[in-house]
């Protein structure tokens, strides 16, 4: 049932990501106002558990969603369907997770 679980996980994370991406983009557009420096951004995000939670969930969802999609692409477009593909996308997912969480940690603490 691996395929069924991956399928479900990809759909569930897509469902989660849809509103998160919208909020992410809208906030970027609204928060900029007349220009924004890195220091001003950090002043708003540091110590905010709300933004830490928001982007924490965002990163986890991306780290699950993207490797599953990449796995399908590799299988269909490159014919790469054996176990090494699963390993490669796992590494890719872990890299996304590591880099993403590090960034979240960096701007919210």
């Amino acid at each position: 049932m691996l395929e069924a679980r991956l399928y479900l996980l990809q759909r569930a994370t897509a469902l989660l990501l849809a509103p998160l991406v919208v909020v992410h983009l809208v906030v970027i557009l609204l928060a900029v106002r007349g220009g924004l420096s890195a220091a001003e951004i950090l002043a708003r995000t540091q110590g905010s558990t709300v933004w830490a939670a928001f982007y924490g969930v965002f990163v986890i969802a991306v780290a699950l969603h993207a490797p599953i999609g990449l796995r399908n692409l590799l299988g269909e477009w490159l014919g790469w369907r054996d176990g090494s593909r699963d390993l490669a996308v796992l590494v890719f997912g872990l890299a996304l997770l590591g880099l993403g969480l590090r960034a979240v940690w960096g701007v919210t603490t």
Partner: peptide, 14 residues
């Protein structure tokens, strides 16, 4: 089939 298999996978069927 996708719907039923997803439900089965959710229910822990292996």
């Amino acid at each position: 089939l996708k719907r039923l298999t997803a439900l089965a996978a959710f229910g822990g069927g292996d």
